[in-house]
Design a protein around this nucleic acid. Structure first.
Length: 396
RNA sequence: GGGGAGGUGCCGGAGCGGUCAAUCGGGCCCGGCUGUAAACCGGGUGGCCCCAGCGCCUUCGGGGGUUCAAAUCCCUCCCUCCCCA
């Protein structure tokens, strides 16, 4: 295989999954230049969470790293400190330095599970943003119009919904753009919702006399509900730290239509494989994808276990192999025990569960609102997935 | 500066003196069914009580007040949105 064709297949791979590439020709030239490229990606340190929506980006960065390029992770600590009412919420968490540092540490640990440590550099944008002065800010602001910024989806939405929109928020995209100037990014990656911000970075670099960055956007992954983008605030995410069973199970719960998207974005399925996936039974297809993604996050062994667990417990309504065991005294009320063990939040909840038939002892539905435990050993099932084993002894 | 509309449970959004622990939708949970934790259908969704009662306690931005009784009326403070200047 010649050098040229290898190059182009690399380009093909990098281009795959991307929604926008601005400019494609420029990307090609950069890749052909033989230069070690600076790949920028921004992260938000407000919560120590990495979910599989992020993973789409992370995997793309890794592809660049595999070609020898360098990842520049920019931690948006400056905005986190000032408070950013982003998205739907108008709540502005102001994090302390310690919290940000802690969150960043946790986030990066998760990122580095998938990235090449030696080709990853971390920067905090407060390093340069906290010393910026007013004339620089005004200078930056003069590069964009209000309607450009209002064109951003989340801003416009809030405007339309009559939700507060603060002036300082208009600055954030500018600051993010300025980050690109500082680190002299060659390429910036982001979700499709970031396109505007990425392009602003491009413009900003030009006006600072730098070669503009290439902007690459990747699709946003829909969350478990199948509609909204995966995010913490919607609670529709799969964390990379979820238990293998939960990862597997959550994927089994996504709407069928989403299977191919997950397969493509997270398992790197090619067109051909996607077609195959469409042909087989949705349940089989989903199992396959669930297994792959669980494997990606937790390794083969864990994934295999999760697969078996799902079939046994969810599908067959069986009992899992490992159940936590507890010892209680004779005559205790089951519902109270469940509350004490933290299986349910309140006794009322346990009562409701009992009424709706969601509590079982050794496979028998519990009917009594206050069930007295007798001597012996019991497997208690609460709802679909919670199991505990109780050893009831004679009270002294 | 002027005028108007609002702040209700996880979210959206009713209620506007008792019948309100608060309609409804979403989410979530349980059950049924199944091909799955999909879809669909049914139920539930503040807490407490081994007297489960038409029981008790804590909720409708914060504080105070009127009343036998307030999410609902009054006062005050805080917050948001819209229009005009």
């Amino acid at each position: 295989m010649s050098g040229v064709s290898r190059e182009s297949s690399a380009l093909m791979k990098l281009k795959s999954k991307a929604v926008d590439i601005i400019e494609e020709k420029q990307l090609e030239d950069l890749l052909n230049s033989g230069k070690k490229l600076r790949i920028k990606i921004g992260i938000d340190p407000t919560a120590p969470l990495v979910h599989i929506g992020h993973l789409v980006l992370i995997l793309k960065i890794r592809e660049f790293q595999e070609l020898g390029h360098q990842a520049y992770v920019i931690v948006g600590d400056f905005t986190a400190k000032v408070g950013d009412p982003s998205g739907r919420s108008s709540l502005r968490p102001r994090l302390s330095d310690e919290e940000i540092e802690e969150n960043t540490k946790i986030i990066m640990e998760k990122f580095l599970r998938f990235l090449d440590k030696n080709r990853t550099q971390i920067y905090f944008n407060s390093d340069w943003l906290s010393n910026i002065n007013l004339s620089q800010i005004i200078d930056l602001s003069s590069k964009v119009t209000v309607s450009q910024i209002l064109g951003r989806d989340d801003f416009r939405k809030r405007q339309e919904e009559g939700k507060p929109l603060y002036v300082h928020e208009f600055l954030y995209p500018l600051l993010q753009a300025y980050d690109s100037v500082v680190i002299k990014a060659d390429i910036e990656l982001g979700g499709t919702d970031q396109l505007f911000n990425l392009l602003l970075g491009r413009e900003m670099m030009k006006s600072f006399g730098l070669p503009p960055q290439v902007c690459i956007t990747l699709p946003l992954l829909e969350g478990l509900d199948g509609k909204l983008k995966m995010s913490k605030s919607y609670g529709n995410y799969i964390s990379v730290d979820d238990k293998a069973e939960d990862i597997y199970g959550k994927i089994m719960g996504i709407p069928d239509e989403l299977i191919t998207k997950y397969a493509k974005l997270l398992c790197n399925f090619e067109e051909k494989e996607i077609e195959e996936l469409k042909k087989i039974h949705p349940f089989e297809a989903k199992s396959e994808v669930a297994l792959r993604i669980t494997e990606l996050l937790k390794g083969k062994e864990e994934a295999e276990k999760a697969h078996q667990w799902f079939n046994k417990v969810i599908r067959m309504r069986g009992t899992p192999d490992e159940i936590p065991e507890f010892e209680v005294s004779y005559g205790t009320i089951l519902q109270k025990v469940l509350k004490e063990l933290g299986v349910v939040k309140s006794v009322s909840e346990a009562t409701r569960l009992t009424e709706s038939g969601g509590i079982y002892i050794n496979g028998e539905q519990v009917k009594e609102k206050l069930y007295q435990l007798k001597k012996g050993e019991y497997v208690v099932r609460v709802g679909k997935t919670k199991f505990i084993k109780l050893r009831v002894k004679e009270d002294s």
